[in-house]
Amino acid sequence: MTDVQPIQGQPAPKPQTQDQSSAPLIELRDVHKSFGSIEVLKGVSMSVRDGGVVCIIGPSGSGKSTILRCINGLITIDRGTVRVGSFAVETLKKDKELVPLRHEVAMVFQQYNLFPHRTVLQNLTMAPVQVLGEKPAVVRERALALLAKVRLTGKENAYPGELSGGQQQRVAIARALAMQPRVILFDEVTAALDPEMVSEVLNVIRDLAREGMTCVLVTHEMRFAQEVADEIFFTDKGVIVEHGPPGRLFKCPNDPRLKAFLDKVL
């Protein structure tokens, strides 16, 4: 899953000269974004190292989903820079230019966002074949292995609408993995699930994190965040108020807004 993709597309304005392992894989600098007259991101900076697992927490409407969507270019930013590997994301405009980025950065959503008209197996194989132009037979093998990994063997020919929420979300994770990405963005992937299905999805994410997949998670599962994350970012009203390793952030928060938030959710 972690094999290195050939570097394609737009190079970053300042090419990396230093040793790759020390440079962060994802780097946001002073990112601003407005929807109409509402400024949703007011100068967000953060970085994620290769193989890192970071969680973004914060109140509803603070811009967490917007940050994720900036990272894979689903929305364009007004100011600042977003760099992922060798891509300067803010310079990618055309759909075609975005393909190599989307190949490296997969995303999993709260509402699963599966293709309802395709079977589970087709959901996994469609994009690698249709977008990346890979050989169907190769993709199929990989897809079957991934379904086994998320413990859904036997559901290949089911349609998403015939599965439980937890199963659909695991299909969505497998679909993201089928792209062989370097990074996966998770946007509140357990928020729509019944409590008994939350753990089956978190278990899959935990495995991925342990295997060294770079993960950026927006989550309300504080205990899970504490367990898997190397670093936690707390957002409020479009800025990152505080960040740090979970041990410190949860035990002795500095910012009063973080304190108030943790009092509410813990």
Partner: peptide, 17 residues
């Protein structure tokens, strides 16, 4: 649903695809 469309976009599908 717009979520289904966003799912496709996030997988690299162009507008036409």
């Amino acid at each position: 649903p717009s979520q289904t469309v966003e799912g496709a976009r996030a997988l690299g599908y162009t507008r036409l695809q």
